[in-house]
Amino acid sequence: MENKLALLYIGAGASLWGIIGIFVTYFYELGFSPTQVVAIRALSASLFLVFYVMIKNRQLFRIKFSDSKYFIGTGIFSIVLFNWCLFSAIEETSISIASILLYTAPAFVTIFSRLIFKESLTTPKVMALMTTFVGCSFVIGVLPNTHESISLYGFILGLGSGLFYALYSIFGKFSLRKYHSLTVTVYTFLFAAIAITPFSGLWNVLPLFSDIKVWFYVIGLGFLSTMLPFLLYTKGLNTIESSRASIIATIEPVVASLIGFMVFQEKLNLWQYIGIILVIAAVIITSKKSTKKTLISNELSL
């Protein structure tokens, strides 16, 4: 029964990550830019996480000033850039395509781990890389010459989200050696908020915050699609092995695609759906060889 409950936690967390496109799209309709939406996510998530840690264990706030470099990496070079690329890709392409291009992250992690940590390129890893490449080619329309390819800019944004998402695993690998995962997450979003807010121009859209719908979307983005799924996913990891958890988490792009189809009437062709299946399959192949620490750092960024 406990394992079934853990599976439910993991599935619920991944599903909540998958609905983020709803809030992002509605923010755009109200007049917010991608940079402003990134700032709203970072600020709101920071506030919710700080409040949670104050209740749970204030000792988790303690870090060494010299270790700020880790959170510059996770917060600025990963979270800020990853979110900006993802939200811009949603605006440029669609929720479905942006979410599946984000899932190229495990392929980037494999490449970075080989270059930085000298991890071996096993047969499953090579298979996963090739599967990801073919799957993405189908998703963006390059193969099999469907004449429905997305723009080059949209493709670069999508790959950029996967690239910077992957960097969280690399930077997070160092910080998790010294700090609790919740500490890493809190300071990641705090550093992200401090970095992006001065450049967001949020003060130019202050009148928009008089609309009650904006505050609903702020809570949805910061709590429902950021903090809550993190808590659910982490709780599930306490009971079941991380490889099973990561496989269940691939429900995220499926949920995102369903949201795009049912809520925003986004349409994909058969080859793009095949591409989505291939990318998810590559994630499953990669996850079977992943360690628990890597997977925790991978998933906490969403």
Results as ranks from 00 to 15, higher is better:
92 E>S: 13
201 G>H: 12
123 T>N: 07
172 G>H: 09
187 Y>M: 07
176 L>A: 12
185 T>A: 15
87 F>I: 06
174 F>T: 09
128 A>G: 05
167 L>A: 08
82 F>N: 11
142 V>L: 14
117 F>P: 01
85 C>Y: 02
149 S>G: 13
108 F>W: 14
87 F>W: 05
123 T>H: 07
124 P>V: 01
119 E>M: 13
130 M>L: 15
138 F>W: 02
143 L>C: 03
83 N>I: 03
108 F>M: 09
151 S>M: 04
174 F>I: 13
126 V>M: 13
81 L>S: 02
76 I>Y: 07
98 A>S: 10
173 K>W: 09
188 T>Y: 05
89 A>V: 06
162 G>R: 01
105 A>P: 06
122 T>E: 12
105 A>Y: 06
106 P>C: 07
202 L>R: 05
162 G>W: 01
191 F>S: 06
180 H>P: 08
178 K>I: 13
100 I>T: 01
137 S>P: 01
159 L>D: 02
92 E>G: 11
109 V>P: 00
138 F>S: 01
97 I>C: 04
90 I>P: 01
167 L>Q: 05
172 G>C: 13
99 S>N: 12
161 S>M: 08
85 C>N: 01
149 S>Q: 15
98 A>H: 00
188 T>R: 04
87 F>D: 02
133 F>Y: 13
194 I>S: 06
149 S>Y: 11
86 L>P: 04
159 L>F: 14
103 Y>Q: 03
179 Y>I: 12
86 L>D: 01
132 T>N: 07
139 V>D: 02
85 C>G: 02
115 L>A: 11
92 E>R: 10
169 S>N: 12
144 P>I: 11
146 T>L: 08
183 T>C: 12
177 R>P: 00
204 N>F: 10
113 S>E: 02
122 T>M: 10
94 S>T: 12
147 H>N: 13
82 F>A: 13
117 F>H: 09
168 Y>D: 11
102 L>K: 02
170 I>D: 02
205 V>F: 13
173 K>V: 07
191 F>L: 05
178 K>G: 14
198 P>A: 09
197 T>W: 07
181 S>M: 15
128 A>H: 00
204 N>P: 05
174 F>E: 12
164 F>M: 04
202 L>S: 00
163 L>F: 15
205 V>S: 14
166 A>F: 04
135 G>N: 01
125 K>I: 09
161 S>K: 04
161 S>L: 07
184 V>I: 13
196 I>C: 04
152 L>D: 01
110 T>Y: 03
171 F>Y: 14
204 N>S: 14
102 L>R: 06
102 L>M: 15
134 V>K: 03
138 F>A: 08
164 F>S: 05
197 T>S: 11
207 P>M: 11
123 T>W: 10
92 E>P: 02
189 F>Q: 02
173 K>D: 14
75 G>E: 03
164 F>C: 05
171 F>E: 00
114 R>D: 06
193 A>D: 00
147 H>K: 14
165 Y>H: 10
90 I>F: 09
138 F>L: 15
105 A>T: 05
118 K>C: 05
197 T>R: 07
205 V>K: 12
190 L>M: 12
195 A>I: 03
90 I>G: 03
196 I>S: 00
116 I>K: 07
127 M>N: 03
170 I>N: 07
